[in-house]
Design a protein around this nucleic acid. Sequence first.
DNA 1: CTGAAAGCGCTAACAC
DNA 2: GTGTTAGCGCTTTCAG
Lengths: 341, 341
Amino acid sequence: MYETRFIARLLLNKYSGDDMGNIREVAKLAGVSVTTASRVFNGHPYVSEEKVKAVMEAAEKLNYTKNINAVHLSKGRTNSVGIVLPFLHLPYYGEWLHGLAEEAIKEGISLQVFQTNYQKKAEIDALQSLKSRQVDGLIIVSRINEIEVISAFREDGPIVLCEKIEQGFPSVYIDHYQAFQTALETLREKGHQSIGLCIHRKTGTNSIERIQAYRDSLKKFKMDLNEEWIFTGCYTINDGIRVMNEWEKLKNRPTALLATSDQVAAGIVSEAKKAAIDIPGDLAVMSCDNHPISELLDITSIHIPVKEMGRRAFKLFIRSLDGEDNVREKLETNIFMRSTI
Amino acid sequence: MYETRFIARLLLNKYSGDDMGNIREVAKLAGVSVTTASRVFNGHPYVSEEKVKAVMEAAEKLNYTKNINAVHLSKGRTNSVGIVLPFLHLPYYGEWLHGLAEEAIKEGISLQVFQTNYQKKAEIDALQSLKSRQVDGLIIVSRINEIEVISAFREDGPIVLCEKIEQGFPSVYIDHYQAFQTALETLREKGHQSIGLCIHRKTGTNSIERIQAYRDSLKKFKMDLNEEWIFTGCYTINDGIRVMNEWEKLKNRPTALLATSDQVAAGIVSEAKKAAIDIPGDLAVMSCDNHPISELLDITSIHIPVKEMGRRAFKLFIRSLDGEDNVREKLETNIFMRSTI
DNA sequence: CTGAAAGCGCTAACAC
DNA sequence: GTGTTAGCGCTTTCAG
């Protein structure tokens, strides 16, 4: 049996690591038990100096490295976390991941990234990876499946959400309702009575909150409401350009646009310039994130501490592992006034 | 023994999946052998209809999910690949990952991301994860360690590089030397005799190639050379702003700047505008990547198919797994002429 | 301080 | 078609 398997691996896989011993071989060469060798590799106490040395030497000689998969199986965890997000090319998620990765490396936790493209199935694959113990937990930056679907995996491990969720999950979030209220109030004070919205999608906790704040504000101040003024699918610079073109075609135009992403606002502003539309004279623009590009183009933007969210989400994941699995953290926003409103 | 372990897990970890059976229990409940159950879960042939059904039902009843770590250990691979890159917040890498992730999901390969921050140690950790079999292979988008260090891990699994490397690794790359030559030639034709460089770093295959092209071109055309004109550490918009400020302080100023990133060029161009410096009159600017921001700001840029590189790198990884582990692919670039030169 | 041995849960060779 | 069983390589309990 040994033979067959060995030969098969040789044939199938040149990376069979044939020259890499396992802990048993190391132990044998060092003249100690497997237990002792294991202790040495894990820095456990109560091993004599000389045995430590013998084991280290044997390991060196055999070019030994732990097979981490065996460790994972034996320990029942993987020291890794899955990050679930829709798109990797949007600056928002890049920034977010950057913050998270900085924390994760400190804790020696590895990162498994699941780009869902907002496909339900892809997101469920990520959830499955929790159930199958590929990752110890999940951080869902943005989701597409209903919360009930997510909840079904709740018992399989910590799941951190990044939205204002009532209970059942640890989460880090922005009060988008409040932020939008403030933003709309600010625009109103500037004299805008008709305001349009550029938003990612109509679903999703964050989007729903934002739309709600929008509708509520309009009603409260008896401002104009027009379904045509809600532009969805707005993620990128190009989407902003598209919005600007649509705006131009509108018979009844809003005098201000509130976008949920700086990229979109950037597209709007630059396309406006090309079309000789005066910002903020003909159209005021305000966006979210306060990403460097907004400063660059001098776009008024609501600062969202994206990187910090990534960091916090990771910390919540860690706390969740320790049993504190219902913490919710709200992060603050503030408006950076610039020239586009 | 069973007892102790069980209780310990209950105490330590609420996510012990107590209600989740393993394949043995499923097999028992279904009244079949473990092998048969395994066959069912892996879609292997030669299992009778009824047994398939029995196994499926038992699995359902026990809320069974494969423990993927056991699979990994048993099979000797993990169906995952590690991506090594310095920074997750730079659009370049986001774009790159996006392309890669799209391919990976098709093949059911999961992504482990290693953000190194260009710290040698973090990069080595990634390499170790290959050796410890945490990932089946590595794609190094940009590295900081010497090639010899990487080579030492060559036998542990496929390692795909993204640079023009002589041999020993599969790789996908851009001929940066040629691209820069063309760019510099273009600037020269526009009458520029003194050209500055904004580059990531002085090391790294790609940077070295670019600097070499720079020096060679200057020499060839007897253009001015001034070490002060080489700005390093240029990655972001803010770095571009910094460069612009430094440029202004220069006694002897280059009349053109060639940047390796659109972000940097964007910073330069917008800061120039603030300082009432005419682009391209006082200073011509050209950059690399042709990221949407360059179109936005109408910056002349060398198009680099970043997303495609991500895709190709992944495909090379797959081919490498299949034994074709020395393929090198060159991707083409082309200049998008806009208003900054 | 040390070691024997029983797991962890799945795969697959081999025998029937 | 199906089942038995020996791995995969490490951790950890328990008994010295």
